[in-house]
Design a protein around this nucleic acid. Structure first.
Length: 426
DNA sequence: TCTGGGGTCCTAGGACCC
DNA sequence: TCTGGGGTCCTAGGACCC
């Protein structure tokens, strides 16, 4: 292994389940599952739940019996809580290296090059501090590439004797090969189900088979990404750490509805709410959009009914960022794709082709009245600041209605850290 | 009855240009 | 009979991640 690069992957253990435990310590030692939006699928499990054989991504309703029989604690997902806990964890991790990439809500890569200290001590200290300052348990995988750090993290999680920190570069060649033989190729970071299937077809089953193959074969089969993963297994770093997140390309806002919707106004009510969320995100990032996609889907799991994926993308000559422009536009697009008589179970929108929101004027626009534009700008700024202070109290009329579309969340915990009315009571 | 959401990147193919 | 080569841009779909 070379020593030109050194990375750690810090990964929270069963993150969502652990967040729930921080504020409900009596759940310690008990099996917990966290459900996706609309209480649909199981998206997080504590170790005890994993031990019961509960798999990731399984629909909740299929496991209801197993869950009640075994006293499994069920939680609806609580993203305000998880997001806030995540930023606390990331902040602590950031104190352990000058270069940090926040890779996902529960994972962070850090660059360990040129740190003048004992790396293992440093990582054990990180682990202890995250746990003691946030309550969240993490494991640390260390390696000379990101793919290796990921692999190392697996080992750190799997074998308690490493006390949550494992450096894969410490292995001898023989032990490294033995490790690769024990990991299925589809478990490598970047090799998904489809690629694993292709590899299996030519006799590559374990990571060691992959490691021993010809790089040309891998590139032909999987493209440049496969080649990168291959080289990273040999310790050659091809996937750099991204300390500065790349500019966002699109903003998606979609939901499965609490119940199937047929009525246009009900769909429009849901879409208006989702649009407002998307526009808030757009404004928070100070971005503007020039393409809007609206989509509504019927339920593909209902085999007795035809399945519709209705969608339409509209492009604009001028980038827009104002909810008073985007919300009516979404309603217009919805009107174009809507078909009466069908039951839609899910819908949403994509704001695409995002740009920095400085005002690029359209040379041919007929609304080039600067006074009108200034007033519109003032209005939207006012609405935004009122909504920020008074909890989204100004809404479009199209958003008001029977709220039948609202996703189910029957097992929600409090937003302990982001809402004054939901603080932990002792 | 009940099946998540939000991202990115790559590739193939079509349309178009000279 | 013989029917080029090189390039860009866009879009849709597939694959991957958490």
């Amino acid at each position: 292994m070379n020593n030109r690069t050194k990375f750690a992957l810090v990964d929270c253990n069963n993150f969502y389940a652990s967040c729930e435990r921080v504020f409900e310590p009596k759940l310690e030692g008990r099996p917990i599952v966290v459900l996706s939006n609309n209480d649909g699928c199981i998206i997080a499990r504590s170790n005890e739940a994993k031990a019961l054989g509960i798999k990731m991504g399984v629909p909740y309703f299929k496991l209801k019996n197993l869950i009640t029989q075994n006293g499994v604690v069920v939680k609806s997902s609580n993203y305000p809580l998880y997001g806030d806990m995540s930023s606390r964890v990331m902040k602590v991790i950031g104190e352990y290296s000058p270069v940090q990439e926040v890779y996902s809500i529960d994972e962070s890569f850090i660059d360990l090059m040129r740190l003048p200290l004992n790396l293992m001590d440093h990582m054990h200290s990180l682990r202890r501090r995250v746990k003691s300052w946030t309550g969240i348990p993490v494991c640390v995988g260390v390696g000379s590439t990101k793919v290796l750090a990921k692999l190392a993290n697996r080992i750190a999680k799997k074998y308690p004797r490493f006390d949550g920190v494992f450096d894969i570069d410490d292995l001898s060649y023989e032990r490294y090969c033995k490790l690769l033989k024990s990991v299925e190729v589809g478990d490598l970071w970047g090799i998904g189900r489809q690629s694993a299937k292709k590899l299996n077809r030519i006799g590559i089953h374990t990571s060691h088979d992959f490691y021993q193959s010809d790089v040309g074969v891998i590139e032909t089969l999987l493209g440049v990404n496969g080649k990168k993963i291959y080289k990273e297994l040999y310790g050659s770093s091809c996937i750099p750490i991204e300390a500065i997140p790349p500019a966002r390309q699109q903003i998606v806002s979609s939901r499965s509805f609490g119940c199937d919707l047929k009525d246009f106004d009900e769909l429009n009510q849901a879409l208006t709410n989702l649009t407002r969320k998307a526009v808030n995100k757009l404004n928070n990032h100070q971005l503007a959009t020039t393409t809007i996609t609206v989509f509504i889907y019927t339920n593909p799991h209902k085999k007795d009914k035809p399945c519709f994926h209705l969608s339409k993308t509209v492009g604009m000559t001028t980038a827009i960022q104002d909810q008073s422009q985007i919300i009516p536009l979404v309603a217009q697009i919805l009107r174009l794709i809507y078909k009466p008589g069908h039951s839609f179970y899910k819908g949403g929108l994509v704001l695409g082709n995002l740009t920095k929101n400085y005002q690029q004027q359209d040379l041919f626009s007929i609304t080039q009245n600067s006074q009108i534009q200034t007033m519109a700008r003032q209005k939207s700024n006012t609405i935004r600041s009122v909504n920020k202070r008074f909890n989204e109290s100004i809404k479009y009329a199209s958003e008001l209605g029977n709220n039948r579309w609202l996703p189910r969340a029957d097992f929600k915990s409090n937003r302990y850290t982001t809402s004054w009315t939901e603080l932990l009571v002792i």
